[in-house]
Amino acid sequence: MRIIVTVEDPEPGFLDKFTALLAEHGAKVELDTEWTVERATRYYRELPPRAQDIVRLAAVQDGLVKADELRKDGGDSLRGVSGPLKRTLDRGVRQGWWPEGMKAPIEPQGPGFGKVKGYIMPLDLVDVFSAAADNTEKEN
């Protein structure tokens, strides 16, 4: 038997308490950590504009955005671009928008030490985040 529970707009801390209750009484609890269009739209809307650009470009370019495409006016710095992607993912867990364990939808690629060569989104998320960007664009 499989039971699916959907919790929309939970109060802060509710999911932690609910998950603990299920873990205590359930033989096996499996959280749904898949990106849906609804979750992706929430994530996308919460991002600042420059981070939205990265996600949108990745979604329309089969998951890959090269760093050169993100540099505005010939500038070399991409400083501060990756942080909002991670912070928004973490905030979504704290706010109960999605459970802990959600995989980052887009990751910086590079040698490390702050040098980013680009961003990559898994191919299975491209259509989901493309729909999220389209949903947001239609509302604006």
Score class of each variant (00 low, 15 high):
A40V: 00
F18G: 08
L64R: 11
S130L: 14
K66Q: 09
V128A: 13
L21A: 14
R87S: 14
P122F: 12
S130I: 00
L85H: 01
L47M: 07
K66V: 07
T19L: 11
L31F: 05
L125Y: 09
K28F: 12
V81K: 11
P122N: 09
A27G: 15
L15C: 14
A23E: 15
F14P: 06
L22F: 15
A131F: 02
S77R: 10
E38A: 15
R71H: 07
D124L: 09
P84F: 03
A40H: 02
D53F: 01
P105W: 01
E137F: 08
V93T: 10
T36E: 00
M121H: 10
D9G: 01
T41R: 04
A27K: 14
T88L: 07
F18P: 06
P84S: 01
V29P: 09
K103C: 03
M102H: 05
D90S: 09
K138L: 14
P48G: 11
T36G: 05
P12R: 13
R87F: 12
G80T: 04
R42L: 13
E69D: 12
L64E: 11
A27P: 10
E139N: 05
T6Q: 13
R50Q: 12
D68V: 14
D134E: 15
G112R: 08
L21F: 15
L125T: 07
L78K: 00
L89C: 08
A133G: 06
D62C: 05
R56C: 02
G80S: 03
R2M: 03
T33A: 10
R71I: 08
V55M: 02
D68Q: 13
G114L: 00
W97M: 08
L85T: 03
I120R: 15
R91M: 10
R87T: 15
E8R: 13
E46Y: 06
I106Y: 04
